[in-house]
Amino acid sequence: MKPTRRPPPQAEHGSIVFRALGWLLLAAVVVAPIASGNGYLLTIAIFIGIHAIIAIGLGLLMGYAGQVSLGHAAFYGLGAYTTAILTTKAGIPPLGAMAAGIVLTAVVAVLLGAPTLRLHGHYLAMFTLGLGIIVQIIFNQARGLTGGFGGLMGIPPLGVGYWQLDTKPEFYIAVIAVLTVTILLANNLVHSRIGRALRALHESELAAALSGVDVARYKLLVFVISAMLASVAGSLYAHLLRFVSPDPFGFAFSVELLIMVVAGGARSVWGPVAGAALLTILGEVIAKTGEQIPWVADLDVILFGAVLTAVVIFLPQGLISLTSRLRRRSPTAPSTV
């Protein structure tokens, strides 16, 4: 598991030694997969990185805008398919295709978010859920464009000109770079005027509105950013597998993302990263144990469900809140997810 911490509201309370140790440990964990030279570890680490990028976005939406998306896999899929289609059918270079994917998902997110985020209640959850199902059907049915159920192959490696990231360590470094940028951006957002406004909004939407915060506009902004991050992750995924097919972008993955965010903790930038790592590793551990003891392999669904329920009940701030408890030696105040 990644050592994770979040910048506490009063950073001074965390001891410097603790912070330094945390960063060192983090650096070690990031370098370990490359140093090991083990292709399997690298692959797992790459998947964790890609999932963490989406999870951070979803975390912003859930933790700061107080909204839940049940169709984030669709944005992930839109990014992946845009990259796949543009690079294989139009010969557009990877970065151009990735940018096109970001623009496309941003447009879809605005169209979906603008009408729904002004309403209270379950509307965004409902519309994202519907979008997820519709997008999945399009991936399956628009055969000429998407290759249908069989998928689309022949996606080139990620790269610019002569510089091609066609080995695993290179690709891993690229994913880590994108993840780092994502974390920095998210941190900035959280500590910016917008972030403060959103936090206020989370405490009391009414109070925020009364103090002149345009609640709906900020919510929309966060939603669009989270969709764009999912799209970037999708493009990376397409270059990793050099192949896309509809199945990985369904409701099941949207739920998995939700578990990552909730388990890690939505109200911190590091929480979703920890959640992504935890869930992926837990999945692998169950599968590995299942190779020896077959019935264990069937435990995955039940265990993920139990983790999700237990975390919401006992650790509403996610597992990441454990590190700040450890650091401050005082329990965090209970609050919503």
């Binding site: 083990n38 399997y40 570890l41 597998l241 192949f243 097919s245 199945d247 990985p248």
Partner: peptide, 20 residues
């Protein structure tokens, strides 16, 4: 034996593990 859970991601992880 690796279970890919009917998605390519699982197959990619599984195959890399097997090769290692």
């Amino acid at each position: 034996i690796k279970d890919d859970e009917s998605v390519p991601d699982g197959a990619v992880k599984g195959a890399n593990d097997l090769i290692e």
